[in-house]
Each structure stands twice: as C-alpha cells, then as structure tokens.
Simulated assay, not measured.
Amino acid sequence: MNCKKKISIVFYSGAHSLDVIGPAEVFSLANQQLKDKGLSCDDQYEIEFLAEDGDTKLVSSGLRLCADRCFTDSKDIHTLLIGGNLHDEAERFNVSESLKHWISIQSGLVERIGCIGNGALILAEVGLLNGRRATTHWRYVDLLKVFPEVEVDEDSVFVKDGHVFTSAGVSAGVDLALAMVEEDFGRGIALSVAQLMVLYLKRDSDHKQSSTYLLSQLQSDRFLDLVQWIHSNLEQSLCVNSLAEKASMSPRNFARCFTRDMGVTPGRFVEKIRVEKVCQLLATQALTQERIATICGFKSQEQLRRAFRRNKGMLPREYRQKISG
C-alpha cells in the first residue's frame, strides 16, 4: 500500500503558471529535505498534475504544461489544489461544468482542498466556501464578495477553514504550500524549504497581502531611499529630526511632505515597519523579547508590547503561540 501523500494539482487553459509550479516546487523540495533527514520514500509526497483531458494546456507566460492524466483518472488524492488565472472578469475561467462537478465530489473525499488566487471563485461557484472564511487575490476580492455565504478575508495571504485552504495567489501559493508542509512534517522542514527557495520571509496566515515596505515603494519616489535606509537601521532612534536630516529637509517640511506622500506620519510608519520586523523574528528566531526589542529599535519590552498590540491586536507572546500551532 502506498502511504505517500498524493498532491494533485489541477490546471486548465489560461491558468497562471506560478499558481501551478510554485506549490509543486514546495512539495518537491520538501521531499528532498525529508530524504536528507533519512525518512523513507513512503513518508514523502507524490505530486501529480491533472487536466480535463490529460493533455497539454497553454497557461500564462506562454508556457505549455503537460498533465500526467485526466482528473477523472486520479485516485486516492490526499491534497487537491486548484490554481487561478489573471484574466479579466469577462473571460475569467475556461473551466468546464464537469471539472466543477468533479471538484465538488472530491471535496468530500480528500484530506484537504486548496485554491490559489482567484481559484477561490471556482470553489465558491460550487458551494465549497459557503459558511467558511476565505481569501483571494486583492484584485478579485469584490468578485468573491458576490457570494453572500462566504466570509471574505480581504487581507490575509492565506486562510485555512477546516480542510479548505484559500490563498491570495501567485507567490502566496508558495506560502499556502509551506503551511501544508508544516502541518504534515513540522515547522523545521517548512523553514528549510523556505530557505532553499531563498524566501525573505515565510509568511504565516495572518500576514497581509501587501507589506508596508512594498506599499511605500508604490506610493512615493521621493522617499524610496529613505524607506530603504529605515528598514536597514531599525535599531536607531529614527525620530523626525534624524529622518529629516537624512532626507536633507527641515523637520517641519519633512513631516508634512512625508505624511502627504505616504498617507501616514513618520512615527506611525516607523512603528509599522518595526512591528513587521518583530513578526519576522518571532516566526523565525528563538530570541527573547528583550533581544527583539533591541534589534527592532524599541526602547523597552513594554514599548514593544504596546506597539505590537496596537498594530496586531495581540501581544508578542500570543502571536508566537499562534504561529507555533
């Protein structure tokens, strides 16, 4: 009897290639890590690619993906994943009713089912997200809200509700797959895979789809260099006077221009960046709160706790317990 966990990834014409390949790479690298640790082949993943007729499909970026078999020929699936696409609403999916029907049946047979990006719309159409919390790519949130029985989480990178996983798509499909690896084989293996993939951060489910750093890059060209400098110097005081000096502006003019361009005061911006760094350290390092406070530029553990609760709605220790399962 084959004890491997079969990961079945469904794709179709027009699917987003990274929604398919990204999670597949995570499970493949997990196999490598498990093998390196001496686990038997039966303790690993079996990865298969499914398409409606078991044929080659043209997906995004001009790639052609070849399926292992037709979805109706697959048996004993442990984890079923359905990718999304980046098409406009008018041409959203080229997904047949037979595939939707098969997905609906499989949802009651598999250990878990997940979708990447606007693949959530497929699950919603067949009723699998009714009464569940779910997310999707920010571009398609309004389309998911059309389904009144779905509790839409607009911000999270991925969401797990029971045995159903949804994610924001593209790179977030990697985060979803890493969460599944962690669920199966522990956080150590998942972090090893993240390291092999040269990820800056293994994001957990409560991470937002857009980081403060990325949003700041989109919002202002004037302060790009300053924002990068802030990220690299969080241990410094970073008061308005020091930031204004770095930007070669008067403190008053700097505060006014920064708030106008970035939509937030300099002090609040720095706090958000520091809290994001705290989250990263809590998730990846076994450091004391005192050490984390020092690294992130907080004057004390109490100042860290207040800022963390203000931004995350919980204390650092509660956050660490949450991500540790």
Rank of each mutant, 00 (worst) to 15 (best):
D155M: 14
N2I: 14
C41W: 11
G173V: 10
R309F: 11
V278G: 13
S167R: 05
S242R: 13
S216T: 10
E46T: 04
Y140G: 02
A255F: 00
F308M: 13
E182Y: 00
I230V: 14
G54V: 00
R69K: 15
A255E: 08
E149G: 11
K272R: 15
D206L: 11
C115D: 09
D76H: 11
K145C: 11
E245L: 08
I122N: 01
D153G: 04
F308G: 06
D68T: 02
R69F: 07
L196T: 10
E302N: 12
F298M: 03
T135K: 10
V126W: 03
S60D: 12
K100G: 03
V193A: 01
E149D: 15
A177F: 03
W138P: 09
R268I: 07
V198P: 00
R256Y: 02
K37N: 12
E276Y: 09
V240R: 14
L86Y: 11
K312P: 00
C66E: 10
S104A: 12
F308C: 07
A134V: 06
L315C: 08
I122H: 01
V159A: 06
K312E: 15
L215I: 09
G119I: 01
K322L: 07
V159L: 08
V95D: 07
K35F: 08
V174T: 12
A124M: 02
R112K: 13
S250K: 14
A134M: 04
N85T: 12
S40A: 12
H16F: 10
V198D: 12
R133V: 11
S242W: 00
K37A: 15
T166M: 08
D261A: 10
D53G: 08
L238R: 11
L304I: 05
V26L: 08
V150Q: 04
E111L: 06
A194I: 13
K6Q: 14
S248Y: 08
L18H: 04
H16Y: 13
M1S: 15
G263S: 11
V193N: 01
G297N: 07
A30C: 07
L234Y: 07
L129T: 07
I295W: 04
S205N: 10
A134P: 10
N85R: 03
D221V: 12
V193E: 08
A286C: 05
D88W: 05
G173R: 04
A51Q: 03
R306G: 00
A172H: 01
L58W: 03
H16V: 05
V26G: 09
A286I: 06
T56Y: 02
I82F: 15
R306C: 02
V227Y: 04
A15N: 08
Q301N: 15
K75Q: 12
E97G: 02
Q209S: 14
L144Q: 07
A120I: 00
V146D: 11
G173N: 07
E271L: 12
L39Y: 15
R291C: 09
F258Y: 05
M314I: 01
I230M: 13
L176P: 00
D225P: 01
V170F: 05
I230P: 00
Q209L: 12
L50V: 03
